[in-house]
C-alpha cells in the first residue's frame, strides 16, 4: 500500500508495477477535477462522465508522463480542460447555467423574501461566470473553488504568475460590467 507522504511523482513511477499507486493518485485529485468539471459543465451527470474519462485517459498515458517541472495535478487539469472544451464543442452552444447548478451557500433564514433575492443574485453571478471565456472560467474555479494561489494557477494554466494576476484583474472587470451594465 502507498503512504500519504509519498509525492505524486513517486506514485506516477510506481503505477507501472503497482495498480494501487494510481488509486492513490486518483484519491488525491478526484475531488478537485470533479469540481472543476462540474463548474464548467453545470451538472453532475456530465461532471461524472467527464471525470471518469479524465482518469481513464490519465491512466492510459501515465507511463508517458515525465517530470518536467509541471505537477501531476496540472497535467490532469489540462486533460480535463481539453475534454470540457470538446464537450462544449460537441454541443455547439455557449455554456448556460442549468437549473441543477448548486447554490450551496444559501442559508435558511427567517426571511424567505431575502433568501429568494440572494438565490437570484447567486444564479445571476453563476450565469455571468459561465459566459466568460474558458480560460477565465478556469481561473475563477481554480482560485475560488480550489483555493489555489496565483503561482499554482499559473503552473496549471501554463502562464506566469504575473499573467495570471493580470488575467484575474481583467476577469473581475468583465464580471463587474456583466453584472452591472453601464448606465444601470
Amino acid at each position: 500500500m502507498t503512504k500519504p507522504d509519498v509525492g505524486d511523482m513517486e506514485l506516477v513511477r510506481r503505477t507501472a508495477s503497482d495498480p494501487e499507486a494510481f488509486g492513490e493518485l486518483y484519491e488525491r485529485h478526484v475531488l478537485r477535477i470533479y469540481n472543476y468539471i462540474y463548474y464548467r459543465t453545470g451538472n453532475h451527470h456530465d461532471a461524472e462522465d467527464l471525470t471518469a474519462r479524465v482518469f481513464q485517459r490519465a491512466m492510459s498515458h501515465v507511463i508517458n508522463f515525465e517530470d518536467q517541472g509541471v505537477p501531476f495535478s496540472a497535467w490532469l487539469y489540462r486533460i480535463a480542460h481539453n475534454l470540457v472544451a470538446n464537450w462544449h464543442r460537441d454541443r455547439s452552444r455557449r455554456p448556460v447555467v442549468p437549473l441543477e447548478f448548486h447554490l450551496a451557500n444559501i442559508r435558511e433564514s427567517e426571511h424567505p423574501e431575502s433568501e429568494a433575492i440572494a438565490e437570484e443574485e447567486q444564479r445571476m453571478m453563476l450565469a455571468a461566470v459561465s459566459q466568460l471565456p474558458p480560460d477565465r472560467q478556469q481561473l475563477l474555479i481554480l482560485k475560488f473553488v480550489e483555493r489555489l494561489s496565483n503561482a499554482q494557477i499559473g503552473e496549471i494554466m501554463g502562464r506566469t504568475e504575473g499573467a495570471i494576476k493580470s488575467l484575474y484583474h481583467r476577469t473581475l472587470n468583465t464580471l463587474r460590467e456583466e453584472i452591472i451594465p453601464s448606465g444601470n
Binding site: N35, Y38, Y39, H44, A104, N105, M125, I141, F144, E146
Partner: peptide
C-alpha cells in the same frame, strides 16, 4: 464569488 463558487 467566494460565496457562489464553493466546492461540491
Amino acid at each position: 464569488l467566494a460565496q457562489v463558487l464553493v466546492p461540491v
